[in-house]
Amino acid sequence: MGQITLQRVRKSFGPVNIIKDANLDIENGSFVVFVGPSGCGKTTLLRLIAGLEDVSGGQILIDGRNVVDVPPAKRGLSMVFQSYALYPHMSVRGNIAFGLKMAGLPRPEIERKVEAAAATLNLTPYLDRKPRELSGGQRQRVAIGRAIVREPKAFLFDEPLSNLDAALRVQMRLEVTKLQKQLGTTAVYVTHDQVEAMTMADKIVVLNAGRIEQFGSPIELYERPANLFVAGFIGSPKMNFVPGDAAGEPGAATLGVRPEHLKIGKEGEGWPGTVSVAEHLGSDTFLYVEAGKLGMLTARCIGEFSLKAGDHVWLSPDPARLHRFEKDGSVIRR
């Protein structure tokens, strides 16, 4: 079991409120990603769950039991750190076994579990090496091995992939997701990378300035962002925002449209503009279009588009995919 519930959790350092009233229900077995810009409090929130920081107020329930006064070691969680935090003086075997040793398990059982975890993570040939003799990806696996071997109620990941190069990151992303599904253990994962969030999560928590802006599945966040912040944060390239009156929609303060929902035409309808930069990726073409008082708009077209800087184009938004926002940033539902 690994049901984690946050009720009105607050954290302040002196007069600074890092976390303001967080309420959250993380279901057993789900993969939840905390995402947000740096300094939004996502890591702090994770450390509060871990018990590495004390809450200033509110309750954290794990399987229904309030754990705010329970030390990290007794919460039954395990954590993968951004720096991996491997014990440099211990072998891979020693690193993975450490938690079990601390729990006082009998030696044969430790041995068996370590072997099993190493096999799962393809670490068997490296069991007797020291962390400094491993590559970044292998260290990452050891850190994960150390987390899974204890069969915790939940895994906590603190930006675990940010020190890896791009190719390895994609591969590890898949492996972590696969492993989590296979084990069925709850996972809470912190990242600043919205692609990671979208690809890995069952549910995403978008944080901004210590506040939970929205909690929902990736598709929900993409299709129905609750406010300007979420709309701007989720999706790449970023959603275009234009002033409502300038776009002929005086009912909304701001109008949002994703680059992939802008149709490009050489003449006719929509918003006129001039291409200022065209990025040709082969599979897609990104157009950065100067559209007068609407500002700079980004359009994403599938396939190769033979447009270049200086060309005049017309952009027409898909009316079903328009997002309308109030002055205060919240979305106008209809």
């Binding site: 018990g51 920081e53 004390d54 006064d69 030390p71």
Partner: peptide
């Protein structure tokens, strides 16, 4: 002694 942060 098992540490919570306050105990630390």
């Amino acid at each position: 002694v098992v540490l919570a942060t306050q105990q630390t």
